[in-house]
């Protein structure tokens, strides 16, 4: 009987992982409902959910998963996370001890890339506060203060708000000198990130986790590593 339940647990966790990739919210709901019939804990289910999302991210990075499918997988991940959170009693995934404030700078309303990055960072265990798009400087600074953020992640698809980005970075530096500032978006590249005063540049969803890790590990700043 014990053996049967163990097998069942593995099957359920495998189903959770596969359901995440199915892009079907109904399926993840049904699969997570079956969890209680097994010995799988909510924490283990969350790990399985995260593994599924990580597989999707890798597939996207390797160009084997198109953007719309990644977005649908993120929806399933969020659905699963929402179902599991009440069962975790605050014991969510192992935190990396860092909070991240993220948003699109004032003057730009393109938030698709930012939404993906926010979800991936959350999936990776960071505490993410997403301020949305067209966010004013003071709203960013207030959130940084409230969250004691270790990373400020800001984006812009357009070149027109770059002055806003530069100004925000300067103010954020004054407010929290030890905080890392990460930038991204179609208007930017590595060199421009440095010139705007950022510590890091994430070209896409594939590089953002590594770049955040680098900033938190206090490895050399983008500015120190690559002369502008």
């Amino acid at each position: 009987m014990m053996r049967e339940r163990t097998v069942n647990k593995h099957q359920v966790l495998q189903s959770v992982e596969e359901a995440t990739l199915s892009r079907d919210p109904e399926r993840i709901r049904a699969t997570l409902a079956r969890r209680t019939e097994s010995e799988a804990t909510p924490e283990e289910a969350l790990e399985a959910l995260t593994r599924g999302m990580e597989r999707a991210r890798t597939l996207f990075q390797d160009r084997r998963l198109p953007l719309p499918e990644l977005l649908l997988t993120l929806d399933v991940f969020r659905e699963g996370l929402g179902l599991l959170k009440p069962l975790l009693h605050g014991k969510t995934r192992p935190k990396r001890g860092a909070s991240i404030v993220i948003g699109v700078v004032e003057g730009d309303v393109h938030d698709l890339g930012k939404n993906i990055i926010a979800a991936i960072l959350e999936m990776s265990g960071y505490r993410v506060r997403d301020l949305g798009k067209d966010v004013k400087r003071d709203a960013f600074l207030e959130a940084v203060r409230e969250e004691r953020a270790r990373i400020l992640a800001i984006s812009s698809m357009m070149s027109t708000p770059l002055d806003n980005m530069r100004e925000l970075i300067a103010w954020a530096r004054k407010l929290s000198p030890a905080m890392g500032v990460l930038v991204g978006g179609a208007a930017l590249d590595q060199t421009l990130a440095v010139k705007l005063g950022a510590d890091g540049y994430a070209a896409d969803a594939g590089t953002v986790v590594g770049e955040v890790g680098r900033l938190l590990g206090r490895r050399p700043r983008a500015a120190d590593a690559r002369p502008g």
Binding site: R23, L67, P68, L71, L72, D75, D111, N115
Partner: peptide, 11 residues
């Protein structure tokens, strides 16, 4: 909105 449009294109 691009995000909703992309999902609609699939579903």
């Amino acid at each position: 909105g691009a995000e909703r449009l992309f999902k609609d294109c699939v579903h």
